[in-house]
Each structure stands twice: as structure tokens, then as C-alpha cells.
Amino acid sequence: MKEPNDVILKTATKAAVVIILAFSIHLFLSGHHNPGGGFIGGLAFVAAVVLLYLVHGIEKVQKNIPVDFKKVAGIGVLISVFTGVGGMISGNPFLNQAFWMVDLPLFGKTEMATAVLFDVGVALAVIGASLTIIISISDDR
């Protein structure tokens, strides 16, 4: 990508990316009770990274985020599968999820659900796969 003088864009991006990332994490965490969840959270994260690519160019971003997104996708799928196996260990069918209510010191009465772990896998897989696709395509010159 060429290097135009786009100071405003770059500055705005810095703020926007932080907001989008925070929002994506919020979407992800609130997914169990409000609109959101692994897919949306993951995709919003992807949107943030894509914005970075658009503004700063691929090489620069890859240097600063040295993550192989193919591995992220693979890890995501593995996490989801293993949470499923977890259900089997406790004698339930594959992919059976469980949840408990736990009293945490700061948060008060909080719900712990294995479904969240599964959702983490989903989110990672979505992030990894989508970014792999986008980076591959934009890399092909």
C-alpha cells in the first residue's frame, strides 16, 4: 500500500481500534445473557484488526502483532472440541455443558459456565479463520 499523508485517519484509528476492541470483548462476555457471544465478539475483533491493516499496511501490523492466525483458528477449534470431551468425562453426552453459581469476592454472585469456554473456542476460531482469509487475499500481489 502506498503511503499517503493521512494523519487524521491514523490518529482516529488509534482511538477507534481501542474502542472496537473493548466493545468486542464486551460483546463476547455479555453473550450469555445479552446479544453477543463468540461469533459477534470474534467478528468485531476481526473488524478492528482489519481497520489497522487498512490504515497502517500489512507489513507494519504483522511486525507488531506477530501472531500466526492459522494457529489461532486451530487452537480455537481444539478448545471447543475439548470442552465437549469434558462433558463426556463427567458421564454426560459429548458437548454437554454445565454451569455453577459461584460467589466471587469482588463480583458477588457470578455464574461460571463451561459454555463460556466453548465460546472462547468459537471466538478464537472465527478470529483466526477470518484473519487468515483476509491477510492471505491482501497479501497476494
Binding site: 461469533f39 477470518s130 482469509i133 492471505s136 487475499i137
Partner: peptide
Amino acid sequence: VINFATTALFLV
């Protein structure tokens, strides 16, 4: 999501 994946693959 699957539509997205297949569209991307098809495009490439």
C-alpha cells in the same frame, strides 16, 4: 458465518 466462509473461498 458459513456463507461468509464459502463466499471467501469461492472468491479466491
